[in-house]
Amino acid sequence: MDERPITFAEAINEALKQSMMKDPEVILLGENVTSSWRPTTKGLLEEFGRERVRDTPISETAFIGAGIGASILSMRPVVELMLVDFGLVAMDQILNQLAKTHYMSGGAVKTPLTIRASYGGGTSSGATHSESLYSLFAHMPGIKVVVPSNPFDAKGLLLSCIRNDDPEIFMEHRLLYDLKGHVPAEDYVLPLGEAKVVQEGDDVTVFTIGRMVHEAIQAAQELKDKVSVEVIDARTVVPLDEKALISSIEKTGRLVVVDEDYERCGFCAEVTAIAANKAFEYLKAPILRVASPNVPIPYNPTLEKRYLPNRDKIVSAIKSVARYA
C-alpha cells in the first residue's frame, strides 16, 4: 500500500472524503464544518457541495436529532461536535434516542450515525472545554465508543464507524490533530473492538487509550532498563477487547490502567473490574489507576498540569506495581 506521513487531522479528512466519494448517502453536519481553518473537514464543501456538508446552528439537540433521523432512513450521517463537552446539552438525543432505538425497536430500526467529537485537556481551556467523557457514553448500552491514538487508526476506525450499522461516538484528542504518522492512501477499515499492543513487555501491562497511549509509551521508554512494560492501546472503549487485556495480564501479572477521563466509574474502573474478575489468578500486584481526578478540570496551566494524568504519574504507578514479586 502507498503510505505517506500525514497528520491525524488529515487522516480524518481523508476518511470523510473517501466515504463521501463512495457513498452519496454520507453527509456531514456540524458547527462550522465548512470553515477553511478546520483541517478535519477542509475541502469537503468544495468537493461535495452545501447540501451534503452543512453548517448547523449552535443547536446540538436539533442537529444530532437530525442525524439520528436521517440514519433511521438509512443515510450515513456524520455529525460533528466541536467539543465533546457540548454534547452534554444533547444527552436526550444521544443517550435516550440514538443509543436505545435499535434495541427498543427489536431491530426494526437501525441508527448508523457517527458522532465525531474532539476532546481532551492540556490546552488550558477550562472545565467545559477540556473533558474526555467517553466513559459517560460507554455507560449507556447502545453506542460504540472509539478513541484513536494515531493517524493510521483514526482513518481506518472512522471509515469503519461510518460504514458500520451501529451508532458510534468517535473521539479525537485536540492535541493529536498535528501528530504525523504513516497512513495508506487507499480506503481501509479497522475492526472495532480490537486492541493493539503498541509495545511488548513482560513485567507490567499498561492498558490505555487515546492520547494517553503516547504518555504511556514515554513512561515505558523512561523505565526501559528497569521494568519491561507492555503498552496496549484499547482503541475502543465499547466494544472493549477483554481478550487482549487478559492475555497480557497472564504474561505480566501486573496492571496499570491509564485514562484521561474522570477516574470514578470510568474506563479505568471498568478495565480494573474485568481484570479482577477474569484475570485474578494471574495478578501479582494490586491494579492501579492513573486517571483524571474526580474534580472539574482547572484552567490555570500549572494547575491543569498538576491535574492531568501524564508520563510521570504513569512511571510512578508502574514502579509501585513492579515492586510486587
Binding site: G65, A66, I68, G69, S71, D92, N96, Q97, T101, A108
Partner: peptide, 30 residues
C-alpha cells in the same frame, strides 16, 4: 417503531421524537 408505514416512532421522552423528525425530512430533501 413500524418503519413499514413510516411510523417512527412513539417516544417516552416529552418532545424526544421531534429532533429526529428533522432527519426524516432532511433525508427527503436530500
Amino acid at each position: 417503531f413500524d418503519p413499514s408505514v413510516g411510523a417512527l416512532g412513539a417516544n417516552g421522552i416529552v418532545g424526544g421524537s421531534v429532533p429526529m423528525v428533522l432527519g426524516y425530512a432532511l433525508a427527503h430533501q436530500l
